[in-house]
Design a protein around this nucleic acid. Sequence first.
DNA 1: GCAAAAGTGTTTCAAGTACACCCATGT
DNA 2: ACATGGGTGTACTTGAAACACTTTTGC
Lengths: 228, 228
Amino acid sequence: MTITQNIKVAVDAVVFGYNSTDGLSILLIKRKSDTFHGTWALPGGLVHEGESLEQAVTRELNEETGVSINYLEQLYTFGKPERDPRNRVVSVAYYGLVKPDIFKLKAATDASDVAWFEVKKLPTLAFDHNEIISEAIKRLKGKITYEPIGFELLDEKFPFSELEKLYMTVLDRPLDRRNFKKKIMKFGFLEETNEKQSLSGAGRPGNLFQFNQEKYFQLKKEGINFEI
Amino acid sequence: MTITQNIKVAVDAVVFGYNSTDGLSILLIKRKSDTFHGTWALPGGLVHEGESLEQAVTRELNEETGVSINYLEQLYTFGKPERDPRNRVVSVAYYGLVKPDIFKLKAATDASDVAWFEVKKLPTLAFDHNEIISEAIKRLKGKITYEPIGFELLDEKFPFSELEKLYMTVLDRPLDRRNFKKKIMKFGFLEETNEKQSLSGAGRPGNLFQFNQEKYFQLKKEGINFEI
DNA sequence: GCAAAAGTGTTTCAAGTACACCCATGT
DNA sequence: ACATGGGTGTACTTGAAACACTTTTGC
């Protein structure tokens, strides 16, 4: 019954960023170590002795990419014996969402070893990272329909069309503008401001909206259930 | 960057059994090792080097309880540094469902160190196992509403009322008999047989039904979505 | 014959879906 | 003036919810 186990525990992060022109993107890093050298991979690494899994993800993200995360949730744990060719590594995958300013910022700072890739144009990744990403996308699709986490990918204040486009992008299907707005506004946690969007090109500028999280939590406690 | 990590990887299993008299129950074992000696806990243990996480759960369940599982799904990974007082253990929790015959069988064989506990009458458990169970129940509640996994807790053939009671027990709310039956039967994967229930007491015996899994998978491919 | 459980339809109400025209701005 | 994107309401259809009496069996 005395087993000397030598399995490493790692975390990996699927970080999503969004804007209406590029769609949904994922943050990747180019590997520097021998295994899969030069290959793109998810940010992540071994968990330290004294830290929680969430702390490990946050730390690794900060070390490897410099981004700080806005919304973070555990996704799934990947543990096939052969998933790392060197030794046995069990990886607890997380997925996270960042606001557009962080998304934009890093796209600029880009030192060619950290980059955003549109989910439609992902390269082949190291280890089982493509599989992890496809699970993350599946989860995001599901989650966004019954929890209003979409706001975590938008600025504090945003035109309504941005939210609509986001949902269409993530769910990968068209949505009726009027019906979508009716549904969202009925919940009561989205507030309309008086400010107007500063549109880049032509078109009528729309009002800006903001998500009221406290109101949402309150409504949730009272038993509303958000669903798209 | 060379970190000598000494974290152990374990698996724990929340195994659900069901019958209409006792309701929903969970399989627990009484601990024999020093830490938490004599305390009830979830079956589980350290993952071996060459096996997958699923294999580890199945093996541990077999070694510790003798039950073989019918439906198994990863739940969540628990990794707080202090969750095991001895050393750092990250535990990948699974939940599983067993058919009534296995549920019954083990209740009889019971050597007082393996037992079923009704979810309403759980003792205080070792480690963070109470927390794991409450997550498992939450997940089961959610899952059973959008995937027909309830059948994994019933016999091959069962009276319709069993399914109805199961849903009421798990969801912890009343359901209208006629509306529930309408909804389930509309999907088309539940088949009515000519056999009749052999009722123990008084009452009109009902027809037995069976779940047609192939038909369900086919319908799922064609894009139905089950939802209660 | 009475208690226990199963079987069965209709009506009402709420939510989902489909759909088209006008408005404000930039060029 | 025209191209671009934003804003808005109604009619129709479908699904959800509420609801009560009859039938078969054991005792």
